[in-house]
Simulated scan of single mutants.
Amino acid sequence: MATPTRRHATVALAAFALALAAGAPAQAQGWPDKPLRIMVGASPGGGTDILARMLAEKFAAAFRQSVVVENRPGASNTIAADVAAHAPPDGNTLLLATNTGQAIAPHLLKLKFDPLKDLQPIGLVAVMPNVLVVSAASPYRSAKELVAAMADKPGQLKYASSGIGSTQHIAGEAFALATGTKAIHVPYKGSSQAHIDILGGEVTMMFDSTSSAMGQIRGGKFRPLAVMSERRAAELPDVPTLAEAGVKGADVQTWYGLYVTAGTPKAVVDALAAELAKVLKLPDVQARIKGLGGEVGALSGEAFAEMNRQEFERFRKLVRDANIKGEGL
């Protein structure tokens, strides 16, 4: 007769064999049975798109299904979120969202979905500080010089964002509020389009996320003046924080999280969360996120949901204090 230890080993081996037969990693039974899609509320080439395509590649290999990234830019990232919120709750439609759509836009736009109720958080993917950038050809070489120019020319300088209610927009308004200055907000449908006008001299500055701006910074086309975080970015060690540059109370970071349609079976949610956790531990993924100037996410499930709720309330206050007006409100 087999000993208890030997019986346990036999059961474990049998379970492992079944998992291999079903394909690693172990997945919810019958899922996914068709290609997955990751909705992105920004245009190709921006930070959200970069991270989404990275996840799509890893998920395709893990789940043995093709994973397509669908870009639906506009309306502060909420067009893509709306699609995900109203998709069948089968786990086949994912959303890579930022705090733009999940915590800011609800206070500025009339939405047909509730970001806190209609989307199920899977996990935090990354956090990127926003960085104040100007063209390399700009005459401004420090945040102090830029603030002085804004004070001398109230309401004349322009700053770009990836849309009304985006973190770039909020960061710009927080900067103006903290410095007592005014600038004209010029919204675009994505960071990549905004970059064109900054380089062309049509817009003075941008409070972009490092994930979107690092390529232009490394290429010598953007001059970073300050990062909008408590400490300096690891990839920009020579760039001061706003506080170091003399501007306090205007820290803004962009976070990226993975969601699925609310009501998706728990087994599928758990499978996605487990795989995301594995992906975020991969050396190449960690290197990619750090190379974008950010930090790898370390929250999943309820912890990430609670962070989303706290950010929702934080930005509600900032929008009110800065008297930021959205479309239709």
Rank of each mutant, 00 (worst) to 15 (best):
K117W: 02
V68E: 14
G293Q: 12
R64P: 04
F315P: 03
I170K: 00
F16M: 08
A245K: 04
I324C: 02
Q120K: 12
L111Q: 07
F63M: 15
T241A: 06
A105D: 00
G246P: 15
D82Y: 07
G263D: 07
P73Q: 07
E306Y: 02
A143D: 07
A226E: 14
F207Y: 05
I164D: 08
L258C: 14
T254S: 13
A52W: 05
I184P: 02
P115M: 05
A213Y: 00
A262L: 09
A245Q: 04
P106W: 00
P154W: 08
L13D: 01
R37N: 08
M205Q: 15
R7A: 14
A322I: 13
D208M: 09
K153T: 12
E145G: 09
T179H: 15
T181M: 08
V268W: 03
K221S: 13
G180H: 12
G172H: 07
P89T: 09
A194K: 10
A245R: 03
T48A: 15
P121S: 05
A274T: 06
A277M: 10
G297R: 06
G101R: 00
G23I: 05
F315M: 04
G190H: 11
H169S: 10
G297H: 08
D82V: 00
Q193S: 14
V83E: 06
R72C: 14
K158P: 06
G123D: 04
F175I: 12
G201N: 09
A2P: 11
N130L: 08
N77M: 07
L280N: 14
L236V: 03
R7M: 06
V252G: 05
A148D: 13
R6W: 15
S211G: 13
S162T: 08
A75G: 03
A149W: 01
E235N: 11
I79E: 00
L95F: 01
A17D: 03
L109K: 00
A149M: 11
F175T: 13
Y159I: 00
A26Y: 07
N130V: 01
V319R: 00
M39W: 01
E202Y: 09
P139E: 13
V131P: 11
A103C: 13
Q168Y: 03
P224V: 03
E57V: 12
A97V: 01
V131W: 04
S76Y: 02
G45V: 02
A26R: 12
R320S: 14
A271Y: 01
G165R: 01
D321Y: 03
G257C: 05
F222Q: 05
E235D: 10
H107I: 01
L116P: 00
Q102M: 09
A274G: 05
R7Q: 05
I184L: 02
F59T: 14
D197V: 07
V69M: 10
K182V: 09
L124G: 07
Q65T: 13
A136I: 01
F63H: 08
M1Y: 10
Y256Q: 09
Q310C: 10
A84S: 13
T204F: 06
E244M: 04
S300M: 05
V268T: 06
